[in-house]
Design a protein around this nucleic acid. Structure first.
Lengths: 217, 217
DNA sequence: AGAATTCTTGACTAAATGGTCAAATTGGAG
DNA sequence: CTCCAATTTGACCATTTAGTCAAGAATTCT
């Protein structure tokens, strides 16, 4: 929400240096790992500094406050978060579009679980930071895509389904694999790390969710 | 994990007094609200004491450490958590059993969202406390119920589905309404508080998840 | 090279936090 | 009512934590 952008009218803030780019990246990466486990309140600047292999004062040289780091890492995460839903295309085949969306969300859960957990923690905490985002951009996007799904249903290209709840179901089932990874591992054991597991998961999720909306004879 | 139960063989620990019963209950209720928002690390004893309308030393008279409160509230939550799945009956009608299970989970999400969030926070944090529980009782229970579902599938009474992923999908979709309540409210607005919303949600979730497993043709 | 700027850190501070303790108050059994 | 155990609390302590600061080290620019 701040830091780094030239806010003052006069040409303050010199351009970002090489070292700044490197270190900010290192910090944000470390912060993601830390915040995604214990949330904002449960994480400490020292933990982030340690993970970034950097002294605390040095870290605070790049981000003045704990809040600034948190906002920065959340912000960059949110962009990725929206992308797959934004890509849902009204002119495509309904089942194919949903398949793509679910597959993409599952891929993100598998490849960037920390991002999903960061977001989950923020929501659980009452969304103190992203609330405005949820009520504007996300709400608008979901409303738009829900309308598309509603049209598909009324055209008989999908079984009758509440579009909002369908979107929630997709979020829930896909993010579950990132957010509740520990629980899934406790139940399935090392099987989770076998090469075929991701495909197997995709197969199952697609079959359950799409099976429920695929138009019936 | 401790406190209150008479562990020693000799008759230590007098019976719980009336005031103890009342205050422990008040504390656990307050602790649930606090821990469910910010997790163990992000919550403070002062917050819990304030919510319990009790001085901190008084609170610590009943639970010696923050950890003890946390374990106690988690433990009582876990019992409720298992019940609905335990009730799944191999001799019942598959679709009807799943419907009951989903409905029951949705009811818990709506009526005890804090319990669901407490659990979500614990898992996100890496399940430091409930890991043993997950790896023993939960794993055993899920394995048992998965076998039942597998049988239903092989008898042709359910469409072919991976039983584990089906259970995960049910957990995900039902708990989502508690854990991500803030997000859902941001998108749906006051609609969430309308009397019919719960039924509408149940209708949608059942249709999506059961639609995907109901035997075809 | 030499000056200016950027980067890094040890030492520190104030506030928050988990937990203790002795003394005062209250509740309950006889 | 009386006495003993249970309950309550103000004051306090040690540690953790967010954030500061001045001074030293490294980088960049000319």
């Amino acid at each position: 929400m701040d830091a780094k952008v030239d806010t003052a009218g006069d040409g303050e803030d010199r351009r970002e240096t090489r070292i700044q780019a490197i270190n900010r990246e290192i910090i944000l990466e470390a912060a993601l790992e830390v915040f995604s486990v214990n949330g904002f309140r449960g994480s400490t600047v020292d933990q982030i500094a340690a993970r970034a292999a950097m002294s605390k004062p040095n870290l605070l040289y790049y981000f003045r406050r704990k809040q600034d780091i948190y906002r920065a890492v959340l912000e960059r995460t949110l962009a990725d978060w929206l992308a797959p839903l934004e890509a849902m295309d009204a002119s495509g085949d309904p089942v194919e579009e949903l398949r793509r969306y679910i597959t993409e969300k599952l891929r993100m859960s598998a490849e960037k679980p920390a991002a999903s957990r960061l977001f989950a923690n923020e929501i659980l905490a009452g969304a103190p930071v992203v609330r405005p985002f949820l009520e504007t951009r996300l709400k608008a996007l979901v409303t738009e895509k829900a309308a598309i799904i509603r049209d598909w249903v009324s055209e008989g290209r999908l079984a009758p389904v509440d579009p909002y709840h369908l979107i929630f179901a997709i979020w829930a089932t896909t993010q579950h694999y990132a957010d509740f990874d520990v629980q899934i591992r406790a139940i399935l054991g090392s099987q989770v790390d076998r090469p075929g597991f991701r495909d197997q998961t995709a197969q199952a999720v697609l079959s359950i969710v799409l099976g429920g909306v695929r138009p019936r004879g």
